[in-house]
Simulated scan of single mutants.
Amino acid sequence: MDTIKYHKKRTNYLKAAYILFQIVPQVLEKHVKRTHNIGLQVAIESTQEDLRRILTEEEFSDLYHMNRLYNHRLYPYYHGIVQNTKLDTSIMDFLITMGIMTVGDRDEVDQCASQTRKNKLIMEKMMDQSENACELFLNAVQRYYDNFEEICVEIGPEVDMGEQIVNQEIGHIGIRITKNYDMLIREMSNTVDIIDHLISKEVLDIDDMEEIKSSAVQSEINRKLISRINIAAARGYSELLVALKADVVNSTLVDKIESTLVTEEDMECYKPTSQHQSFGTSLGLSIMISLCEAIGRAELPKVEPIKENNIIQEDLTLLKEHMNFIVEEEEICEEKYSRLAVELTDIIQRLGGEDVKRSCKKYFMKSCCVNEMNCLLDKIQKQKQLMYLRKSKH
């Protein structure tokens, strides 16, 4: 019974976190557009001095990095490539061979602590290259990853019926693993043997192993392991089940995964979202709240009269409070989640307008895929570090 209660509380937490960190920044972006008829880039330029005062140095740096990236040729692929690929192996070799990068660049990349940081550094270096170099880079990634369209592109190509049947089965396996994600994070053990098996089947490599094992806590090891498996899609899922079955303790987890029902509603609910994030989501919740507050102080011209200007400011304050709550907690009881859902619905509808009102219920039905979930938890961890940094300065 305690396990069921924990799972429910954790599910409530992830739903609330998804709404706050993935959806609300998009809603705030819509609010700026419909109220002032300007894009975020213009809003940033109009309020940059105010933003420089209220944002941390790291937030301000992130803001201008994303602002620069937004109009770049690589932006539609940026998040998918950073989260779902390994650029520092054969792709980096190709870039050096073509004279796009240097051996010195590789040494710099090798100093990065994690795969995500390595990928980000390579992507930042590619942003300074010519358009032709960027095309060569994208072609190289596409050749190296058979599922490039799935993991890196905003909208994948149409597939025939035969492929759809295969993809549906792949989807079922992925959904079963996602629905049991919390269980796997908490209960999966003996991961050394699992990793060895996945390396032998070329689902993972030595670098993956080192990154996964760099965590001292078993739950973090499990989280990183599932994230890397998710990149390999069907083969990764299948081989994970094989490895779990081979272990006496972990084999009970396979029984639970394989007995998990997948409904049509699940297929829609767990459908992966676009790798192409809105600019608001890329900037993040904290920066978007600060930007909206700065716009309010700058008194930029409005195209839509907003009578409840004080209410808007109150909404932004409430969003900060909810953000801090999510950063500090790891689970939410049913009563608290119900109140939070009502408050967030009201805020989203006030800020987003009529278009958002019609789709608001869908936001609370949506579930994260595995990679989204890990990305979401990374954002929360980063926000927690920023909060502690601010507190230490006061």
Rank of each mutant, 00 (worst) to 15 (best):
M1V: 06
D2W: 05
D2H: 07
T3I: 09
T11M: 07
L14M: 13
I19Q: 05
I19L: 07
I23N: 08
Q26A: 14
V27P: 04
V27I: 15
K30D: 14
H31G: 03
V32Y: 05
K33N: 06
R34E: 15
R34C: 01
T35P: 02
T35S: 14
L40T: 03
A43G: 00
A43T: 07
A43V: 05
I44L: 08
T47M: 05
Q48I: 05
Q48K: 15
E49P: 00
L55I: 02
S61Y: 12
D62R: 08
M66T: 07
L69K: 08
Y70G: 01
N71R: 07
N71H: 14
R73K: 13
Y78C: 02
H79Q: 13
H79Y: 13
I81M: 03
T85H: 02
K86M: 11
L87A: 01
T89C: 00
M92N: 04
D93V: 04
F94E: 10
F94H: 08
L95K: 03
M98S: 12
I100N: 03
M101T: 06
M101V: 04
T102Y: 08
R106A: 11
D107F: 05
D107C: 02
D107A: 13
E108G: 04
Q111D: 12
S114F: 10
T116C: 03
K118E: 10
K120W: 04
M123H: 06
M123F: 06
M127G: 06
A133V: 01
C134V: 08
C134P: 01
L138N: 03
Q142G: 01
Q142L: 02
Y144G: 00
V153Q: 13
D160V: 03
E163A: 09
N167P: 00
H172M: 10
H172C: 08
H172E: 15
I177H: 06
I177V: 14
T178G: 09
K179I: 07
N180S: 12
E187N: 10
M188Q: 10
S189H: 11
I194S: 09
I194V: 15
L198M: 09
V203E: 03
D208K: 00
E210G: 02
I212V: 06
I212A: 04
A216I: 07
Q218I: 08
S219Y: 11
R223W: 03
K224L: 13
R228H: 14
I229S: 04
N230I: 02
I231A: 11
A233D: 10
A234T: 04
Y237S: 10
E239R: 06
L241Y: 05
V242A: 04
N250F: 06
V262I: 13
T263V: 03
E265K: 12
E268L: 11
E268F: 06
E268Y: 07
Y270W: 15
K271E: 15
K271G: 03
S286P: 01
S290Q: 13
A294W: 01
G296L: 06
L300H: 05
L300F: 05
P301Q: 10
V303H: 07
I312K: 10
L316S: 07
L318S: 08
K320W: 12
I326G: 01
V327R: 00
E330I: 11
K336P: 00
K336G: 02
Y337E: 10
V342Q: 11
L344I: 04
L351C: 11
G352D: 10
R358I: 06
S359N: 12
F364G: 05
V370Q: 12
N371E: 14
N371V: 12
E372M: 08
C375D: 14
Q381L: 06
K382L: 12
K382Q: 13
R390S: 11
R390E: 00
S392V: 04
